[in-house]
Amino acid sequence: IGSLMYASIFGNVSAIIQRLYSGTARYHTQMLRVREFIRFHQIPNPLRQRLEEYFQHAWSYTNGIDMNAVLKGFPECLQADICLHLNRSLLQHCKPFRGATKGCLRALAMKFKTTHAPPGDTLVHAGDLLTALYFISRGSIEILRGDVVVAILGKNDIFGEPLNLYARPGKSNGDVRALTYCDLHKIHRDDLLEVLDMYPEFSDHFWSSLEITFNLRDTNMIPGSPGSTELEGGFSRQRKRKLSFRRRTDKDTEQPGEVSALGPGRAGAGPSSRGRPGGPWGESPSSGPSSPESSEDEGPGRSSSPLRLVPFSSPRPPGEPPGGEPLMEDCEKSSDTCNPLSGAFSGVSNIFSFWGDSRGRQYQELPRCPAPTPSLLNIPLSSPGRRPRGDVESRLDALQRQLNRLETRLSADMATVLQLLQRQMTLVPPAYSAVTTPGPGPTSTSPLLPVSPLPTLTLDSLSQVSQFMACEELPPGAPELPQEGPTRRLSLPGQLGALTSQPLHRHGSDPG
């Protein structure tokens, strides 16, 4: 009997000691992992102490058991019943959930998450997105703005933001810190809205009876308010094209079509300037034949640059190039080494500058006005007194259609001029006259002087055409309008007829 009692007592005591040691061994194993994590990542002392304290409290609170892992091991129907039991206190005593059906309560219970916070733990920081609604079931918390405590909340209090009033989550206007050990039930806004969409009859009752104890939403960050730039940057990543407008005076608003859609830094370009900076079609017209890549860069430059609305530039004389043409100036200075066709295309550029300027006046029909002061630039669209967005969009579309028509007509005119030049060069190729044979009589004449090349004649003739079109064909006081194609086609051969009437002889060394 004594040996039996000794064996039973010894066996029970050893089993008890073994169970104690097993729990202690698990605790030390998990604690060792936490300390190894702290050492590996070199976490500083204040945060390291918070980690160790939280682990110790969580171990004593749950005995080292992962409740979520245990809950996920059950089937979904059983999980709903378990969640309904775990959140029964909240669902029974909170006013917004009263009167809900059994199915609605089960769906809500599945969406709730339980959070346990030790003292000093910050649940929400200032500036964080308010993605959830919090219900306090135990403990107390404090809300701070800077170093000032603005509120202390306790059991059955609710904090967050009214989700039904805002389409997008706002930002917190303060820090939420736990004063004691707290148990909180939180539900994400997407989950709550999903359940309320499934039960629309409960939705009206819920929003009407929901009383948020403390609204954390920062009202200064609401979209459309003066301080909402940061919020707009976070939620409006896919922005449309940006529009900046110059201020319109009362006198300017009476004149229709007073602005032109141009790229940034293009205030001095012609009315047909689009795409790359520098001139019509993204580059100076005089350098068009020598740089074919300008047409390839036109599309990307047009689509990537934001639109700006600026006044037209001052008018340019008909014979003056659009500006920024070092290529043609070098050719004029060193005409001995340049291609003979460069002079002809220089005359073509003069005609283009004249036609572009006159067509700009035809479509816009307003006098040039000086540029406004820099303080009046970049007025935002949302400022008071601005035109409605639809009106601005319609004006932009009208300007775009005008620019497209202008570009089409300029292309047709350019093709006409090039065809005339090619026809003239085919009839009378460039050549130098040879020395004529002296006559049989004693009164022999001296050799004839060489005839100037055709490109120079073409430049003079085209300059005469531009001056003739600019000065004589337009009646005084009438708006400057571009001439039609047949009129220009008839004027060019008439001007060139006198020049080509002389018999030109080919030089023996000319390969053409």
Rank of each mutant, 00 (worst) to 15 (best):
N164L: 04
L184T: 04
E254D: 11
R405Y: 01
P317R: 06
M414D: 05
T213I: 03
L196T: 05
G268L: 10
D175N: 07
R138D: 13
P264S: 10
D330Q: 03
I143L: 01
P169D: 01
A470D: 11
N339I: 12
R217W: 01
F354V: 07
P482N: 14
P289V: 10
S290D: 03
G146D: 14
R168F: 10
D336T: 08
L163H: 12
P455A: 10
K333M: 10
G323Y: 01
E393F: 01
G154V: 06
S305N: 03
F135L: 02
G494Y: 11
L492S: 09
S305K: 12
P322G: 13
L262I: 08
L459N: 04
G160P: 01
D197Q: 09
S203F: 05
F345L: 09
S225A: 11
T445K: 14
G512D: 05
P384Y: 15
V428N: 04
H188P: 06
L341G: 07
L420T: 10
P372I: 09
E329P: 04
R308M: 10
A470I: 11
C182T: 09
E211P: 04
N156D: 09
P438G: 10
S305I: 03
P326G: 05
F214N: 03
H205F: 07
D157G: 04
S228G: 08
D297P: 12
L129R: 10
G268Q: 13
Q238N: 10
P438H: 07
V150Y: 09
T408W: 05
S244A: 09
P442I: 05
W207Y: 12
N164W: 07
Y363T: 09
D330W: 02
G360S: 10
T373I: 09
P315S: 08
H505G: 11
F312Q: 09
S501V: 10
P318L: 06
D197E: 07
R506T: 07
G170N: 03
V259R: 09
N350W: 01
K155H: 08
P264D: 13
A398F: 13
T131V: 09
Q255S: 13
V451I: 07
P511V: 09
T337Y: 09
R248W: 10
V259F: 11
G227N: 11
E232C: 13
P200C: 02
M328Q: 01
C369Q: 13
S236R: 11
L457G: 10
T426V: 11
V148P: 02
G154E: 07
S509W: 04
A371F: 09
R241I: 09
L454Y: 13
H507G: 13
G270N: 14
T180A: 04
A498E: 10
N378E: 04
R308D: 06
P280H: 15
E161W: 02
S358Q: 13
F202S: 10
T456Y: 05
I141Y: 04
G494C: 09
A267T: 12
L341I: 14
A415M: 11
L144S: 12
S433Q: 15
S284Y: 03
M469F: 10
G270I: 10
I212E: 01
G268E: 10
L129N: 08
G224F: 11
R237M: 11
T213R: 03
R423C: 04
T408E: 05
S305V: 10
I351V: 09
E472M: 06
P340V: 10
R138F: 07
A267C: 12
E161A: 03
G439K: 11
L231K: 13
E472A: 08
S291H: 04
P289T: 06
Q464L: 10
S353K: 15
P271D: 15
V435H: 15
M198N: 06
P289R: 10
G324E: 13
G299I: 08
T426K: 03
F352V: 10
L133H: 01
T337H: 08
G139S: 01
L192Y: 02
S137F: 04
E325T: 15
D197I: 08
S375N: 01
E320W: 07
P374V: 09
H505S: 05
D204Q: 05
S335Y: 10
P482K: 15
R506I: 10
S358P: 06
L216E: 02
S394D: 04
P388H: 15
V465K: 07
N173I: 13
L381Y: 06
I141T: 01
I212N: 03
V417C: 15
S304Q: 08
P476W: 14
R189H: 08
Q464M: 13
P476D: 15
D297K: 11
I136S: 01
N156Y: 12
D397K: 05
N215F: 02
L454F: 11
V148F: 10
P438Q: 08
A434F: 08
L462T: 09
P322I: 15
L504W: 13
L196I: 07
S346I: 06
E232I: 13
E329V: 11
S411V: 09
G441Y: 12
T436Q: 10
V195M: 03
A498T: 10
L410M: 09
F206S: 01
P442G: 08
G356K: 15
P455Q: 10
R368T: 09
H188Q: 07
E472Y: 06
S225P: 14
K171E: 03
D357V: 10
L449Y: 14
W207M: 05
L327H: 14
V465C: 15
P326V: 15
P482I: 10
P479Y: 14
P430D: 12
S294G: 07
D190I: 07
L381G: 11
